[in-house]
Design a protein around this nucleic acid. Sequence first.
RNA 1: GCGAAAGUGGCGGAAUUGGCAGACGCACCAGACUUAGGAUCUGGCGGGUAAAACCGUGGGGGUUCGAGUCCCCCCUUUCGCACCA
Length: 871
Amino acid sequence: MAEEHNSSTTRDERYDPQRIEQKWSARWLSDPQLYAAEPHSTKPKYYVLEMLPYPSGALHMGHVRNYAIGDALARYMWMNGYNVLHPMGWDSFGLPAENAAIKNNTPPRQWTLQNIAAMKAQMKRLGFAYDWSREVTTCLPDYYRWNQWFFLKLFEQNMAYRKKSKVNWCPKCCTVLANEQVVGGNCWRHEDTPVEQRELEQWFLRITEYSDELLRDLEKLPGWPEKVKIMQQNWIGRSEGTLVDFDLGGTVGPAGSTITVFTTRVDTIYGASSIQLAPEHPIVSDLTSRNPELRAQVDEMIAEQRRAKEAGDIGNIEKHGVFTGRLAKNPYNGEAVPVWVANYILMDYGTGAIMSVPAHDERDFEFATKYKLPIRLVILPESTDPEETMTAPPLPFTAENGILVNSGEFSGLSCADAIAQMSARAAEKGFGKATVTFRLKDWGISRQRYWGTPIPMVYCEKDGVVPVAEKDLPVILPDKVMVTLAGGSPLASVPEFLNTTCPKCGGPARRETDTMDTFVDSSWYFYRYADAQNDQAPFDSNTIAYWFGTEGIDQYIGGVEHAILHLIYSRFWTKFMRDMGMVKNDEPVARLFTQGMVIKDGAKMSKSLGNTVSPDEMVARYGADATRMYTLFAAPPDRDLDWQDTGIEGIQRFLSRVYRLYTRDPVQANAAAAETAENLHILEKHGSDLARMAIAAPETAAKAAERKIQRKLHQTIKRVTVDFKGRWHFNTCIAAIMELVNDLYGAEQAIAKGLVPATLIAEVQRSIALLLAPMAPYLAHELWEMTGETSNLLKAPWPKYDPALAAEDEIEIPVQVNGKLRGLVVVPAGASNEQIEQAVHADAKVTAALAGKQVVKVIVVPKKLVNIVVK
RNA sequence: GCGAAAGUGGCGGAAUUGGCAGACGCACCAGACUUAGGAUCUGGCGGGUAAAACCGUGGGGGUUCGAGUCCCCCCUUUCGCACCA
C-alpha cells in the first residue's frame, strides 16, 4: 500500500489505462444526461444504431467490434454538431433463458435480468456512449405489451391468421421455426440438428402481402450492401410464369378435373412430353386410390423427400418417378401426355406440378433420358447471321433467347414474344394465365415455448377465436412456470394463465398458450428507442417522423447473419406500420453496414474451438481504449478481423507513446537537451537536414522545424477526416495519427532546443486529443484535460485542417526511364512542367540512364511523375 | 451448378481517380540505456546482389509511356443460393 503511494510521482509519467479509465468512467456515470439525445434541436439529427445483443451473459469480441464502430461514429457525429440518437437495448426473450432455467434451476426472468446487468456493466466499462434513458428490454411487459398490441392490429387487418400446415420443427428447441430460421435443413441455433416436418395449427403473418414491395423497394436502398440486397432478392424469389391447366379428361376424381402446372417457359410447351407431380400433390391420392402398389411407391417418395430435406441435400437425390397410368391433355396442341409422380418435384413451390420439357430443361432432360420419354426440340438458337441456316443445338438447350419451331401457330416467334402471346391465349381461352410466384412464404410466428410474448388471443367454445381487448393488455407472462422441454407449450400447464373468460360473451375460455417468435421483438424495437417511455402507444408518430425522417435510421450497424431474418421482418413491419398511418417512412433503415467477423487462428471464435478472447480480460490487461482501438485498427470494418494477441500490445504501446507526449517533464527534456550540441552533430552524421541547418543557420532551422510539424499536423487532420467520414477506414485513420506521433518523437531534439513554438506544440496536443476522441475516448478526455481544456471533449468541434498549411513546399518527383524508376528530383510544389523537366535533366542519375539513348518522348504528370521514353 | 467477395512481405494490412508497391502495426535482427528487461529509445527488415543489374501484388495473355488498379482466360479461398420448374 505504502509503496503505491510512494510511486505516485512516477505513476503519472506512465500510461496507466486503469487509473485514467476509472477516473473518467466515474465522471461519465455521474451524468445520466451526458449522452442523451435532445427531443428537439436546431442541430441536424443523426440516428446511429447497432444491433441489440441477446443477453447471453457476456459480451464477446464481435460485440465489442460492432459497438466500437458505432460508438466511434456517434462520437464523431457529436463532434460535428449533430443531435445524435445512440441507444442500446436487449433482445431478451428466447430459448437460452429456458435452457438455463432447466440446467441451473434459475427462473428465465432472473437469469435474463442478471445477464443484462452484467453486460450493461461491461458496456459501461468499455465506455460506449449510449443514451440509457431509452433502453429497451424486450422481455419486460412495458415492451412486449406493444408486441401484443401490434398483433391485435395485424389480426384486425386480416394480416394475422391461423392455419394448420406443415411446419419446421426443431427437436432441440422443441418448437416450430420460421422458414427463415432453417439453414440448410438444420435449425439456425443448432447447426447440426435436422429440422423435422410437423403438422400444426399456427399463427402466420401475411408478409407475402408485401412480397412485391419488399423486392421493389430494395432499389430505394442505395446505402445497403449489394450482398444483402441480393440475399433478400433471392429469398423473396419472385418468378414470372404461366399457369396452364392440363385436362385429365374426367377419368380421375371429380369430373373435369385438371392439373395446373406452373412454368416460366410456356414457350416450350409444344415440347412437353409428360406431366410431373410432386408426391404430395393433392391429386395424387385420387390417382393412386385404386392402386395400392403405386400408393406405396409414392409414399416411399414422400419419405425420401423428407429424409433428403432433413439431411439438407435435397437437390442431390437421384431423380426417379413412376407413371400413374393416366394421360393429361396439353391445351395448346391437344396432345395427351403421361402423368408421372417424381421425387424431384417440390410441393411447396409453384403448384407442385410441372410440365416436363426434356429438350429445354436439364432436369427434365435427365429424367426423360432415364425413362426414355420423347425429347422434342421446339426452340432453336437465334442466329446472328440471317444467311446461316439454323442448326439443332446440343441438348438440353436451355437458353432463353431463341426461335420457336414445331409449335403450331406460334412457330417463328421469339421466346419472349411467345411467352407473352401464349400466356394471353391461355387467359383468353380460360385454361390458364400469366402469374407471379414467390419463394417467400408467410411468417409463422407461433412458438411452443415459455419465454416469449404471449399471443393475445383466447379460444371460446361459443365464440371461437377471439382477440383480447386492447384495454386488457398486456397479457402478462406468468412467472411461476415449470419449464421443461417435454413437448407442448409450457404455458398450457399454468391454469391461472390458461383459464380466462371470453372477451365477447364472458363465458369460460382458454388462452392461446403459444408465444411469439422473438424476431417480432426485434422487428420494431428501434422505433421504441425514439419514444421509449410512452405508455399510451408503442411510440408517438411525430417523434418517429423527427428521428426517422423519410428514409429511416441514418446508420445501422450489425452482422451480416441478419441479412434475411431480422432485416426482412423489420422492413415488413415498417411497411405495415406505414399502411396503418403510424410512420411516414417506407423503409426502416437508410444505410446499413455489415461488419466482418472476429476470427482467430483462421476460424470464427467459438468455445468449442477454444479460440475465444475475453473482452473483460483484454480490458483488465490493456484497458478499454486499447481493446476498442485494436478492433478498429486490425482491419477495415467490413472485413473479417484476425485477432492477434501481440497486435493489441502494439496499440497499447502507441497509446503510451501518445500519453508521454503530454507528460514529458520540460525540465527533464531540457536536461536531455543539455548535450544538444553534441547530439546535433551526431544527428548530422545520420543525415539530418534539420541538424545541419540548426548548426549553420539556427533561425532557418527553427522555421523549418515549425513548418514541418505544422504541415504534418494539418495533413494528419485531413487524412483522418477523409478516411473517417468518407470511407470508415479507421485503420488508416489510426495509422495517420501514428505517423504524426512518430514525427513528433523524431523532432524531439528540435522541440527540446526550443525550435518549435510552444503554441504549436499545444495545438498539436489538442488536435491529437480531438482526433483520438471517437476511437479512444478515455485517453482522449484525459489528454484534453491535460492540455488545460475545460470544455467537454464529447461535443468539442472536430478539428479543421487548412489546405494551405497542409501543402508541401517542395515535392519529390520520381523520374522513370521507359517506365523504370531511375531517379528522384525535388522541385518547388508549384513548379511548372518546364521547371520539372529542367530539374530532371540536371539530375546525375537520370542523365546517366539517358546516356547514349535517343529520347522519343517525355511524359510529365504534374506533381506526380516524369517518364522519359527512350530508344 | 448459379451468384457475390477476396487473393499484395514471416503476419495483420496500406496504396481514394492507372503514376515511387509494401504506409502503419506485429514478429524478427542489430545497437543504446541498464543489476535486469517481457520497459524505453535508435536503426534495419519483399526476393536477389559485395554493390548494382534484375525479379516481385494467385497464374497466363492484352491495353497503355506507365497496371496491384482497366480488359480477356484460368486457378484458389470464403460467403450466399441451390432440383425454385
